[in-house]
Nucleic acid binder design. Sequence first.
DNA 1: CTTTCTCTCTACCATTTGGTAGGCATTTGG
DNA 2: CCAAATGCCTACCAAATGGTAGAGAGAAAG
Lengths: 202, 202
Amino acid sequence: MDVRAQILTHASRLFAEQGYDGTSVQEIADAVGIRKPSLLYHFKSKDELRENVLAEMLAHWNSVLPGLLLKASTEERFDATMEALSEFFIEDPDRARLFLRETLDRPEQMQAMLAQFVQPWVELLGDQLERAKAQGLVQADVDPQAYAVEVITMAVAGTAVIDTLQVILPDDPARGSTRKRHARELIRVARSSLYTETKGEK
Amino acid sequence: MDVRAQILTHASRLFAEQGYDGTSVQEIADAVGIRKPSLLYHFKSKDELRENVLAEMLAHWNSVLPGLLLKASTEERFDATMEALSEFFIEDPDRARLFLRETLDRPEQMQAMLAQFVQPWVELLGDQLERAKAQGLVQADVDPQAYAVEVITMAVAGTAVIDTLQVILPDDPARGSTRKRHARELIRVARSSLYTETKGEK
DNA sequence: CTTTCTCTCTACCATTTGGTAGGCATTTGG
DNA sequence: CCAAATGCCTACCAAATGGTAGAGAGAAAG
């Protein structure tokens, strides 16, 4: 039963790298080291394989992110949470790429997914930001939902393309690796565009 | 000679919507209303068509963006420039989608393009931010290049997927349309994570 | 008028695509 | 010990893919 898992692994990687349409069933079978019909024995069609790849990604996110976000809402450790969040994406850029590709390729389907799994969290965060705004902790002109969308976009899309942006954002002995620079600035931007006072003035 | 332009238009749209691999030459020909060999008379191969679509997009950007960015560096109208910038992308989301897809599909090729057309501007902006930092106008912990990358990512990727994010960021009588909310928050985040004082306190 | 050039077409082609039929081992369970 | 299920295979298949050959219509140029 190891084969099924292997198929999913290679399919995830190839779909992320080349896209669904850019990857043939044959290519995945080759990567696994089996014949095409053997693959289609485990997944009745290419589309079913795609759905399983997506379901696996979603399951992983749902098993990790809620805990992360819950910690963000209870504690006040914004930086630590954001760091864990960006680490989560950077740890496996293929997941971000897959997500971005699905969003481009099948927007309607992705809308349904977003409504179910992302919106509740954005709503929750929105409420908390509104309360923090009332207390003056958060800048008055923040649009909470829009803010969440921008940060998510930065994190996911940034992770998906970061290796390509290496030309613009090279490794730098003083500032760290490309990925590190991205992660740090993402957090800095998210943080300093949210709070009123908390700026760590030099 | 109008046909060539028509092919490019429909190809741009379809490549943006469905991706290069997800779009057949036949489909493009159908959209234009000609037969496949007629299309291949104007562009010797699908790949040549892709290159021309890309070149057209690039030409358009290069004819508009330099002026925009130059204005950003001479005047101090950060908001106006950012607004024009985000308007430029939002005006035709297909261009952002095309750009994003190309970055995912052909990273090496995109690196070359970025090195030639984007990096100089990021470098220029970087220098100016460093100077502004020395004057205390800009926050001390900004990583200029990384900042530029984050803002570009937000603008391009945000525009590419904004219509799909409508579920999370719905039209709101008080706050405006989805696109408007995205554009406004993008500018707010970019602005307030950059300057030291300029926060428009309520 | 004839030639040449531009453009579109029909007819075709090899290859690849996702997918099926069905045989043949090996394991499982009664 | 036998039967059924499991898993992988070879051999196919129809459809779609990107691309070519070459004919014919119409305009441009001599």
